[in-house]
Amino acid sequence: MESALSPVRAAQHRARSNYRTRQIVNRVMLALCGLAALIAVIPLVWILGYVVQRGVGALSLDFFTQLPTPVGVPGGGILNAIVGSAIVVGIACAISIPVSLTAAFYVYARPNTLLGTLIRFSTDVLSGVPSIIMGIFAYTVFVLTQGHFSALSGGFALAIIMTPIVLRTTEEMLKLVPKTLRDGSLALGAADWRTALNVLLPAAMSGVITGIMLGIARVAGEAAPMLFTAFGNPFFSTALDQPIATLPHQIYVYAISPYRDWQDKAWATALVLIALVMGLEIIARGVASWQERKLRGR
C-alpha cells in the first residue's frame, strides 16, 4: 500500500510534518527583511533628526525675511537664498521639463531608431556625470562668454542635471500605460501627438510628476555647480543675468566659515532646504494622487 505512494505525494506527507520548522524559517526570514528595511531607514531619520536638532535653534521669523548679516552682526536671514533657489530651480524646470517630456515621448514612440537609442544612451551617461562637471560646462558656455556669473547659467547647469532624471522616469511611466489605451485613441483617428498629449500623458501623470519631483529634489540641493555659475550674492537679487544666492551655496559658504554663528546658520539653512523640498514633494504627491483618484473613479 505504501509503495503506491507517488514521490510527489510522499514529499507532501513529509512537508506536512515539517510544518513547524517551515513556520519558524518563514518568520526568521520575514524578520530579516524587516531588519534590513529598518537599517535602510536609519540614516534618513538620523540625518533628519540631527539637522533639526542643530538647525532649529537658529530659526526665527527673521531667518526667512531678512538678508544675511556680516560676521558678528546678530540676526539676519536667508531670504535672498530662498528666493534665489526658487528662481534658479524655476529656470532649470522651465528648460528641462518641456525638453525631457517631449524627448521622452520620442524615445517611447521610436525606441529602436538611431535617435531613440542615442537619447537613451546619452541620458544614461549624462546621469552618471558628476554635477561639478555640469557647473564647469555651464561656466564655459555662459559665464566665460558673458563675462559674469548669473542666475541663468545656474539654471542651465541644473537643467542639464535634471533632464536625464525626468526623461528616463517619464519614459518608464509611459511604458507602464497599457498599450490598449494608446490603440483606443489611435483607432478613433487620433494622430500620434494627440494620443500622447490627451491619453498617454494624463494616464502617466502621477508618475511623471514623481519624476519631476525627483529631479527638483536632486538639483535643489546641488552646491558644486553653483560655485561656477550662480556664484552667490549677499544681497537681494532677482535679476536673471546677475549672480544670485542659492540655498546649497549658502550652506557651503556658512559651513566652511570659521565662525560659530555662521556654522549654526548653515545647519538652519540646511533644515530650510530639506523642509522646502519635502514640502514641495508632499504637495505634488497629494495633487497627483487626488487627480489619480478622480480619474480612476475612486
Binding site: 497599457p178 490598449t180 489605451l181 483606443g184 478613433l188 483617428g189 494624463p202 494616464a203 480619474l295
Partner: peptide, 20 residues
C-alpha cells in the same frame, strides 16, 4: 491613416476606456 481609422472604428478585446 487617420481618415481610414475614422471611417473604420474598432472595439477591443478588453474594454479600454480612457482615464477620463
Amino acid at each position: 491613416v487617420v481618415s481610414v481609422r475614422r471611417r473604420v472604428g474598432m472595439v477591443f478585446q478588453r474594454p479600454n476606456p480612457f482615464p477620463k
